[in-house]
Design a protein around this nucleic acid. Structure first.
Length: 443
RNA sequence: GGUUCCUUAGCCAAGUGGUAAGGCAAUAGACUGCAACUCUGUGACCGUCGGUUCAAGUCCGACAGGAACCUCCA
């Protein structure tokens, strides 16, 4: 496996910390609302990465958190006059519903910030002890200028950042680059700490959760491109200061998603709710669409590209259906074997920095060959089944789930009647049966 | 304004300096009782202009256009 590392800005050969194992952490959602289609991209990308690793024989320990402490959550809780927990429970459930509908593999753990609070407070305390953080009137800040190589993930220089920094309204900070680790607060959910009542800043949670679950460095830390700065930069700075390691060997970032060439935003009114689009076009099409572009490139969603994804996927559905019905009618079970050559080509493609578009090229190749197999007079059942198995394996690696066709006794008879009518050239009757089969989506 | 990145056929898209994958759409043909599915054929002066090189979509520079981040949005 080769992966692009944002930190080194190049594709690197993946060398696991522990042989045959992958420790993977992906920044999860802030659960203040239902997720939009852009939030679904890292869900799909990193689930696919995990599936590729598993196909290569790795055991993957994958963790993703819920950020359930946030201004927007507090605001919503106040609006609804309920506790924050009511809001976060609701959207965690909605998020998990989307995850499961997108056919993602279960995670090893999904920690919440609210359940990690003791560790977060202890971690901030250690940062103060180490001299990397300071308390001013109950607000604790990270001392960015003390951190070495700050900006190495986002490729920003501290001088440039200082120059570009806005005039801050927080005069208590030593530097405008310093970020909040603990915020004094009077409204909303709050916890007791050595610095008074308050709640944690955003950047500490992931570091603490990673340490809590993995007890050391992880192989891959993932998230959206927009998290490079400041979130991941700040995570790295804290890890170096307190844990004395770089947190992750590889930092991976997926590209952003646009709608009709424009960024999704509430002001433009073009935010696509993930659940709604899954309802509309189906989870398989959503996954296929997302994976038809390399994960680091921006992805532009339009009506045209959705239709394109549907047509492409339809080719796979069509041939799988034909093979399955063939075996159903023969009352035989398709043996679970795969064509090694195709599988190897596919894995080589997707192992190259998760190049799913190249993987799809192999999928189209095997679909074509399967169609040719299917039309041959002297068909080799073994080859047909191997190609079928290879196609299923590839689709499965992309998380495309297609239930095999199972015919009822009535449907079998309809097929037989249809074929009989055709043989007897009773086309009126044949068309009658054909119509039934088309309506049952078997043709 | 600063930083990072992108620009390949009508559309989507891959591309380790050595003759430009694949798909969608379109179109012609084959298959079919007619269709559908499918198969076969048909497309690119790689944003513009310079430079390096025997050789550049691929490296360097300028320009044009676009994106992300610098504002706790994946």
């Amino acid at each position: 496996m080769r992966l692009f590392n944002s930190k080194t800005n190049q594709v690197e050969t993946f060398i696991p910390i522990e042989a045959n194992k992958v420790r993977l952490y992906v920044c999860g959602p802030t659960v203040y609302d239902e997720i939009h289609i852009g939030n679904a991209r890292p869900v799909i990308v990193f689930d696919t990465l995990r599936r590729v690793f598993e196909a290569l024989g790795y055991q993957v320990d994958m963790v993703s958190n819920y950020t359930d402490v946030d201004d927007r959550i507090i605001k919503k809780a106040i609006q609804e006059n309920v506790e924050e927990r009511v809001v976060t429970d609701r959207y965690i459930e909605a998020y998990n519903d989307v995850r499961s509908r997108l056919n993602t593999q279960p995670l090893s753990a999904s920690p919440r910030v609210t359940e990690t609070m003791d560790d977060i407070i202890a971690f901030i305390g250690s940062l103060i002890t180490e001299g990397y953080a300071y308390n001013v009137n109950g607000n604790v800040y990270f001392r960015v200028l003390k951190s070495e190589n700050y900006g190495e993930i986002s490729k920003q220089r501290v001088e440039d950042l200082l120059m570009g920094a806005r005039v801050e309204e927080e005069p208590e900070k030593e530097s405008s680059l310093d970020f909040a680790l603990w915020k004094k607060t009077e409204t909303g959910i709050q916890w007791d700490s050595p610095w008074g009542k308050g709640r944690p800043g955003w950047h500490t949670e992931c570091v603490v959760m990673i340490d809590h679950h993995f007890h050391g460095m992880i192989d891959i830390h993932g998230g959206g491109m927009d998290l490079k700065f400041p979130h991941h930069e700040n995570e790295l700075a804290q890890a170096k200061a307190c844990l004395h390691h770089d947190l992750a060997k590889i930092w991976m970032h997926n590209g952003m998603l646009n709608i009709d060439g424009e960024k999704m935003s509430k002001s433009l009114g073009n935010v696509m709710n993930a659940k709604e689009i899954i309802d509309k076009i189906g989870a398989n099409t959503v996954r296929w669409l997302m994976l038809s572009v390399h994960y680091r490139s921006p992805l532009n969603i339009s009506e045209e590209i959705i239709e394109q994804a549907k047509s492409e996927l339809q080719k796979a559905y069509s041939i799988l259906k034909q093979v399955e019905i063939r075996y159903e009618l023969a009352n035989e079970i398709i043996q679970p074997i795969q064509d090694e050559a195709f599988v190897t080509q596919f894995l080589e493609a997707v192992s190259d920095d998760l190049n799913t578009p190249n993987g799809m090229k192999i999928i189209f190749d095997v679909i074509k060959v399967l169609n040719q197999d299917q039309r041959q007079k002297d068909i080799s059942e073994e080859i047909l089944v191997k190609h079928y198995g290879a196609l299923k394996m590839m689709l499965n690696t992309l998380g495309i789930e297609i239930e095999p066709i199972r015919l009822t006794q009535t449907q079998r008879e309809t097929f037989n009647q249809w074929n009989k009518a055709k043989t007897e050239k009773d086309f009126e009757l044949a068309d009658h049966y054909r119509k039934i089969l088309i309506e049952a989506q078997l043709l």
